[in-house]
Design a protein around this nucleic acid. Structure first.
Lengths: 233, 233
DNA sequence: CCAAAAGTGTTGGTTTTACACCCATGG
DNA sequence: CCATGGGTGTAAAACCAACACTTTTGG
């Protein structure tokens, strides 16, 4: 069956930038394309948006088809529509990004010949304008994590140690943070759960979770260091 | 002539949210649609993206066709693609926004039956999901202007008085700002030009322009209030 | 000289940053 | 008992917000 329109239309695709941390390095999930164009090149998971399918759903569907990752919280990054970015013809890509907390199994599906994590500091040549999309996604992710308070997307698994959370921030920003300052900013945002995590032959770490009520709990009462008094004048 | 594809495609449009200040109120430029769907309703200027036309160019073109505004600095807001947002069929809209500095003449063109500025505090019912798009654009604009330093888009004409600039910020944020604090933050970002503006029977205002080198000049040396000394320890 | 808007500094409070030691555990 | 990562407070600096008066001009 064929579909006809009165005017020519660009195609619409959805692509997803999935970040995670591996070995202290911020990484992006790429697939090796199994068919033309750019067959054999690395590219972001993604594909065509179906008619009457929302952009968000298309992104989630393509991600699952190609990487078997599902249930991620996707945020829209923007639309990329330069003519010439796809040799098959004018294609508008709506990009999404997310951050994968814990290691999750991924495996190539669909027309992905292979799938792998790549450190953002050493990305391979990529198909289309995907290098540019990743660069912009990285910028956004960093901006979003400028404050430890913002626990975006799903930075960490439901239970985590504060060190784990800090490592995530450090990997994203590419620099080290001060442990005490970092923890100070989490006042009222996290709460300990009744469990600890033992890793090595040292003191176990307390597990935390995010306080689910950003309505009142996030309103940090600033009860820390009420230095003097209210202003009166 | 008709165009056929192997798979059905959503249509792609570009819409533009143009903000400005009128009478101290933040306003948005809307057109009254001259044809179906939503004939007679207010809507954002915009229209279909041509094949092999970049999104940005399409937005600029449609804006000019419908409002005769050209040369504006457009920033992408995002893509809106819920099925059902356009009764003609699945349509993905890529929205842009901008801020119009000085009053510029606008006039209805193309299939705009009319064109007018509407205060964001009293918007009419709008076609499609344009009310949502405006709301998100407003959020973005406010966020972007959270710091007087960020002179986004084209907040003001090339030459401006500091009071004019402050009025813009006040209108966008919907609250009054302190004159001295506001000016303090502009340290190193603006420079006086050799002219002044006389308005009434009072002291004329110095005209300024933005320092075009955000590379080194924006590095505000914070030479104000070197309270004690460098840290030594 | 009066009305009207332009212009200009200081201070208290809050937030951020830099910094070092003791604690609990397993081997 | 020691190696390893977990956990905690304080002080200087930077930043932010509140505040009022003098200056210049035209009428």
């Amino acid at each position: 069956m064929r579909y006809t329109y009165d005017y020519p239309r660009p195609a619409v695709t959805a692509d997803v930038v999935v970040f995670t941390i591996r070995g202290g390095e911020l990484c992006v999930l790429l697939i090796r394309r199994g068919k033309a164009p750019f067959k054999g090149s690395w590219a972001l998971p993604g594909g065509f948006v179906d008619l009457n399918e929302s952009l968000h759903r298309a992104a989630a569907r393509e991600l699952e088809e190609e990487t078997h990752l599902s249930g991620l919280v996707l945020e829209q990054l923007g639309a990329f529509g330069e003519p010439g970015r796809d040799p098959r013809g004018h294609t508008v890509s709506v990009a999404y990004y997310t951050f994968l907390a814990a290691a999750r199994p991924v495996s190539a599906g669909d027309d992905a010949a292979a799938i792998d994590w790549h450190a953002v500091r050493a990305l391979p040549k990529m198909a289309f304008d995907h290098a540019e999309i990743v660069a912009i996604a990285l910028e956004r992710l960093r901006h979003r994590l400028s404050d430890p308070a913002k626990s975006p997307i799903e930075i960490v698994p439901p239970r985590f140690t504060l060190t784990e959370l800090q490592l995530v921030h450090e990997a994203v920003h590419g620099r080290q943070l001060d442990k005490r300052n970092f923890r100070a900013k989490l006042q009222g945002l996290v709460e300990p759960v009744a469990a600890a995590r033992k890793l090595g032959r040292h003191r176990p770490a307390q597990l935390y979770r995010f306080t689910n009520a950003p309505d009142e709990s996030a309103r940090k009462p600033t009860t820390k260091r009420t230095r003097a008094s209210k202003r009166v004048r």
